[in-house]
C-alpha cells in the first residue's frame, strides 16, 4: 500500500498530462499549468528545507573544525546579511527588488561580480581541457585538432585573411557533421525521454520511489 498510492498518483498525474496535451477543452486544457503551480508551491516550501540543510552542514563544519571551516562563518554571515537586507528593503520600499534598496545593492555589487568571476574562470578551464583534448596522440584526437583549428580560425578575421575558404570550411563543419551528430543525439534523447516517461507512468520504473 505504501508503494501503491504513490504509483497510482504518478499514473493519474502522468496520464492526465498526456491527455491534456491532446485535449484543449476545460478542465484538461490548463491541467499541466495547474500541476506546475502546485509544483512551484511545494518547491517554495522546500526552500526552507534547503536553508535548514545549509545551516546544519556549515554548523557541523565549524563545530568539527573540518578543512576550510572558517569559510563557513563567511557563508553564515552572508546568509544573515542577505536576509536582513531583504527584510529591511521589504519594509522600507514594500519590495526587496527596488533598485535603491540595500538588498539590490548587495545583489548588484557583490553577487553579480562574484557570478561573473566564476564564469570568467571558464576561459582558463577551456584552455587546460583543450590542451588535453587536442594532443594529437591518436587519429581521432588529430582529427579533432584539425577540425577545431579550422572552426576557430573561421570565427576570427585572421582566418579570412589567411584564406577566404577557411570561414566556408568552418561553416560546413558546424552545419553538416557537427549538426548531424547533435541531431542524432537529440533524437535519442527525446525518444529516451518519452520511453522513460512511459516507464514511470506505467509504474515499471520505480527507482525514484524510496
Amino acid at each position: 500500500m505504501k508503494r501503491d498510492i504513490p504509483l497510482i498518483i504518478t499514473f493519474l498525474t502522468g496520464f492526465l498530462c498526456v491527455i491534456a496535451f491532446f485535449i484543449p477543452h476545460p478542465p484538461f486544457g490548463d491541467l499541466q499549468q495547474r500541476f506546475l503551480v502546485w509544483y512551484a508551491i511545494v518547491a517554495g516550501f522546500t526552500m526552507i528545507l534547503g536553508l535548514d540543510s545549509l545551516v546544519k552542514y556549515n554548523v557541523k563544519k565549524i563545530t568539527q573544525h573540518k578543512p576550510g571551516w572558517q569559510y563557513s562563518y563567511v557563508l553564515l554571515f552572508g546568509l544573515a546579511l542577505v536576509l536582513v537586507t531583504g527584510f529591511q528593503s521589504w519594509f522600507k520600499y514594500n519590495t526587496p527588488f527596488e533598485l535603491r534598496s540595500s538588498f539590490m545593492y548587495s545583489y548588484i555589487h557583490i553577487i553579480v561580480p562574484l557570478q561573473a568571476t566564476m564564469f570568467a574562470l571558464l576561459a582558463f578551464f577551456i584552455s587546460s581541457s583543450a590542451y588535453r583534448a587536442f594532443r594529437a596522440r591518436t587519429f581521432e584526437a588529430t582529427l579533432l585538432l584539425i577540425a577545431a583549428a579550422i572552426v576557430m580560425l573561421g570565427r576570427v578575421p585572421i582566418g579570412e585573411m589567411i584564406s577566404d575558404k577557411i570561414p566556408l570550411r568552418s561553416d560546413w563543419l558546424l552545419n553538416v557533421p557537427q549538426l548531424a551528430a547533435k541531431r542524432g543525439i537529440q533524437v535519442g534523447v527525446y525518444l529516451g525521454g518519452v520511453v522513460m516517461s512511459l516507464r514511470i507512468i506505467l509504474g515499471i520504473e520505480r527507482t525514484y520511489l524510496t
Binding site: 526552500m47 528545507l49 534547503g50 536553508l51 540543510s53 545549509l54 546544519k56 552542514y57 557541523k60 553577487i111 562574484l114 557570478q115 566564476m118 564564469f119
Partner: peptide, 14 residues
C-alpha cells in the same frame, strides 16, 4: 548522514 547531502545554493555559479 543527512549532512553529507547538503543544499548549497540555487545560483548557477554559486
Amino acid at each position: 548522514d543527512e549532512r553529507d547531502s547538503p543544499f548549497l545554493t540555487a545560483d548557477q555559479f554559486g
